[in-house]
Design a protein around this nucleic acid. Structure first.
Lengths: 217, 217
DNA sequence: TTTTTATCGTAATTTTTTTATCGAATGTAT
DNA sequence: ATACATTCGATAAAAAAATTACGATAAAAA
């Protein structure tokens, strides 16, 4: 392999899924006043092995852990936040101000990590002009102008299935680069656009499927 | 291998994640009138290899694909639905009738797969008694009775972080066996309870992180 | 009917991810 | 000051997942 000097390490999807869990746990520990933490404690908190934690952390941490003490929490939190992009503050818009869209405007979890949902857009006259948790709902007519003016790069799709692809296209045309889709539809995005589709129904189905199989064994 | 008759095949987590994607695509194709489909077409639609698709399907399908034609869509959809537990109709309750909770009551994606969110519960007098998409919001005082009477086994947590653990405990005590948590908190569940925590903030952060790294390369 | 072609199913191989093991380092206690 | 316990980093081994390779078969074409 030729990437000995190019340390653009590839980070697996599995690792990627664990990093936020580490971060959340570390933030909680830091809040309790801890300054150092061992890989095994982290490991136990989220039910993985300590070796795996060390391997994951190796990929993102800028400071090695110390024998007998572990890792410095503050530094590690900073590393994780940097890596996950928490510290490049980004404004996010939501299209679709139904229940789910409004939920995003108000979701408390975003406050802590540099991401801010700044506005929602909708075509329904009845919701345009409302505010949720202090965030406005604007008309889709103003969408492109707003996104362009604020240089928004991240968008959330919370519209009915039938409108999802059109919404995505409009987002891309307006300059948005990353899209998080909550409509239960298979969307097509141009290359270079980061698209993640979240199928709530499928996820709930998996949960229910797990339960089902669990109980029949 | 000795499990020719005991076909309790182990299904990997990775495969489990792909099955709902196959299902959704197949449902769409079926709606368009297709009756047969090849593994390579499925593969292309979700960007994996065709062999992988065949391997995955082998684990759940009750009918082999045919050379030159592919798989019968209707049968395959039925197999996937059965496997994922879509056809053991399950009622689901949501605790927390804020924006997110209401979104679940109205989410259109659940209609199609045998899962039904039947009611929400909250402590806030102002939302109790409301209905969303025809589904009622009840008081938490009536929670245990309702869950017990209807034999509900699946619950969704959509309450603020501080109330999440208490909510989980109440659900478990009431007899719920599978919990989907949307509060940004690390929860502890007894053994035997299926708990999945969905960290929306972390997911958005991953998206933003991917965007960030993409743009600096 | 015979040939061709698309597609499957499975075995073998490779790659990726996780776990196990061990020497070295660094605090803490005696 | 010395011994001891804990934790790390690295490497090796194992397990899991994905890819490649290839023979078999059914439909379509000749």
């Amino acid at each position: 392999m030729e990437d000995t000097k190019e340390n653009k390490k590839e980070i697996s999807k599995a690792t990627m899924g664990r990093l936020p869990l580490y971060l959340r746990f570390l933030q909680e520990e830091r809040a309790k006043g801890a300054t150092f933490i061992s890989s095994s404690v982290i490991a136990q908190s989220i039910s993985v092995s300590s070796v795996l934690v060390r391997k994951d952390l190796e990929l993102v941490s800028t400071q090695a852990g110390k024998p007998r003490k572990g890792f410095p929490i503050a530094r590690l939190v900073a590393d994780l936040e940097r890596f996950l992009g928490y510290d490049n503050r980004s404004d996010v818009v939501v299209v679709g101000a139904g229940g789910l869209g409004k939920a995003f405007l108000g979701y408390e979890g975003f406050k802590n990590n540099g991401l801010s949902v700044v506005a929602a857009f909708d075509v329904d006259e009845r919701v345009i002009g409302q505010t949720v948790a202090g965030k406005p709902v604007y008309s889709m007519a103003d969408f492109e102008e707003f996104v362009f003016a604020r240089k928004i790069r991240i968008g959330i799709i919370a519209v009915p299935k039938a409108a999802a692809q059109v919404t995505l296209d409009r987002m891309v045309a307006a300059g948005i680069k990353a899209v998080w889709n909550f409509a239960p539809a298979t969307l097509v995005a141009p290359k270079g656009i980061v698209l993640k589709t979240e199928d709530l129904a499928a996820n709930l189905a998996i949960l229910s499927g797990r339960l089902y199989r669990l109980s029949e064994e």
